[in-house]
């Protein structure tokens, strides 16, 4: 069966409409069918509609994504209560261990992000993976740092990614690979992202799942939850009216 590819992390400059258009068109050319664009939490609904129109013209599916950077677990819970129902993808950049643990066990978090530059702040260890395996959070790997870093920093990043993907595999935590691109030159085809995953021993099938199956599953689950028919997992409104 033909795979459907998704890039869940595009970060264009939203003030630059031309760049947004270029990046969406490039994603379409690179055979992606769904892109998630990071928007600020206070992004106006009319602007989201503008993004939707841009994607519609390029025959792409758009998902709205918010990146939360809480400093404490309490801040994370507050942000999740406020924004979970407004965005299709919620990613948490874990800047402390407490936040990482809270994000991993919270079923409202879709993606766990860790700093690619500070290796002491990558908290995806065995305990984190165990918590994430009981929740719904996936480990997100952005490819942008792999492309822009060089020398010892890239070597250290590859070593961390190799360890983290091995832990994720052991605990059955899904991995999602995204471009993290802020410029169309940093966007790559899904097969090229999968090839880059060879560098941290992810394996061909797991790498392709990380750019197709896993992100599409998150989107399907979240769209179902955000639909007005959703009541609880497995329960949804089939019909409304007096005769029900």
């Amino acid at each position: 069966m033909k795979r459907t590819y998704a890039d869940l992390h595009l970060c264009p400059d939203l003030a630059n409409g031309e760049q947004v258009l270029r990046m969406v068109n490039k994603a379409s050319k690179l055979e992606y069918r769904l892109v998630a664009i990071t928007v600020p939490p206070n992004f106006a609904e009319t602007n989201v509609k503008g993004l939707l129109n841009v994607c519609k013209e390029a025959k792409m599916d758009l998902a709205t994504r918010v990146d939360l950077k809480p400093r404490t677990p309490e801040e994370l819970l507050k942000a999740l209560r406020r924004f979970r129902r407004e965005f299709e993808i919620v990613a948490v950049t874990c800047e402390s261990k407490d936040v990482a643990r809270q994000a991993a066990k919270d079923r409202r978090v879709d993606l766990l992000d860790f700093s690619p530059f500070d290796f002491r702040r990558r908290f995806f260890d065995l305990a984190e993976a165990e918590l994430a395996s009981n929740g719904l959070a996936c480990l997100e790997i952005d490819m942008k740092p792999l492309l822009i870093l060089e020398g010892p920093s890239r070597i250290r990043l590859l070593s961390s990614l190799r360890r983290e993907t091995a832990i994720a595999r052991k605990f059955g935590v899904p991995v999602v690979m995204s471009s993290g691109a802020s410029d169309e030159r940093l966007m790559r085809k899904p097969q090229e992202l999968a090839a880059l995953a060879n560098l941290f021993d992810l394996g061909q099938k797991a790498a392709l799942d990380a750019v197709s199956g896993n992100p599409m599953l998150i989107m399907k689950r979240n769209r179902e939850k955000l639909s007005p028919r959703f009541v609880a997992p497995g329960i949804r409104v089939v019909r409304r009216g007096k005769d029900c």
């Binding site: 030159r185 085809k189 090229e192 090839a195 880059l196 061909q204």
Partner: peptide, 22 residues
């Protein structure tokens, strides 16, 4: 696969921004 990975990692040639796609 090795060449594909290496090609994907190219972002600049000299001072020109470049992306190479297979």
């Amino acid at each position: 696969e090795m060449v594909r990975t290496a090609l994907a990692s190219i972002t600049r040639i000299g001072n020109k921004a470049v992306a190479i796609h297979v």
